[in-house]
Design a protein around this nucleic acid. Structure first.
Lengths: 156, 156
DNA sequence: ACTTGTTGCTTAACATGTTAAATGTAATTC
DNA sequence: GAATTACATTTAACATGTTAAGCAACAAGT
């Protein structure tokens, strides 16, 4: 094979791919430019990305146990413990032990929490719509589909 | 329009997309399953993802200033300051003020740092190859291309 | 019932993410 | 050329990421 195939142009002398053409960095950059657009709204309302993610998942899933919530929100258990403390202190969520299984913590949004989401939802949806407009709805769908394929391929 | 188009099936009552079909969470999950495969190697060699990323970029770019490095490695300046301290203490990189511009810090790998990368490169390349095998080389290329498109669309 | 192992969550310790402010240096402006 | 502005990096403070260890509650096997 010739010394400079397409794939070779993406590698260095040690067999490492060029950093900008690697999944870890590309995915990180992509997430970064997307989140940039949401940060102003989140900061204006004194919530972090992660707190917002936790509340979004709770709104979507209803009351759940902490493990499920951590998984869906992509947050590690130790982080969730701290985030729950913060959000509970703010009155946005409520947690209590599972009667049936004393190990589990059941978590749910309070009315105040749901109200908070309702207020921010329009802004959030609009920001996402702007992103969709710039990238193209179909491109996003394709990207999400490919990511799902990646998840299925690697999680097995 | 009918009340349940394809796009509507991805939204909730507030106009928010279902969390698992949003870019921020999908990109995060994707990155997570990819990094899972690298973590054992990194942990075994006592480097964090970010430290490894910094060294990879330095190996690729040669001596550069801190801002360029931070940008390429997707690391914020304050984090880079700390990471540089760690890596310099370990003897993997060296930093010194730019003679021409007293504000800039010029950073480069030491011979020990380059040697460290050479030792890990084969393992890293092999892990990446396994990932490629599971996802498919062409699928990864497509994914990277779409991410580049996303970056161009949103960075402008 | 007792032991053993497992599970779900928490704590602890350290590294990084994130923003704002501080510092020192370079470029502009007047 | 002194004052101002902009820039590169650092520091500080708090939130989260990450791993390992701890603890209490369940599950299984004996």
């Amino acid at each position: 094979m010739a010394p400079n195939t397409h794939s070779e142009t993406h590698k260095d002398g040690f067999g490492l791919a060029r950093t900008h053409r690697t999944l870890p960095i590309a995915l990180l950059r992509a997430r970064e430019v997307v989140m940039e657009r949401f940060r102003p709204m989140l900061a204006a309302n004194d919530v972090t990305e992660q707190q917002w993610r936790v509340m979004r998942v709770l709104e979507e899933a209803g009351e759940t146990d902490a493990s499920f919530l951590a998984n869906k929100a992509c947050i590690l258990a130790p982080s969730l413990t701290r985030i729950m403390r913060t959000l509970e202190a703010r009155g946005f969520l409520q947690a209590h032990r599972d009667e049936a299984d004393g190990r589990r913590m059941l978590v749910g949004l309070t009315e105040e929490g749901r109200s908070f989401i309702r207020e921010l939802a329009p802004q959030s949806a609009q920001i996402y719509a702007e992103i969709e407009a710039k990238i193209g709805d179909q491109n996003i769908e394709k990207l999400l589909d490919q990511i799902e394929h990646l998840l299925q391929a690697l999680e097995a």
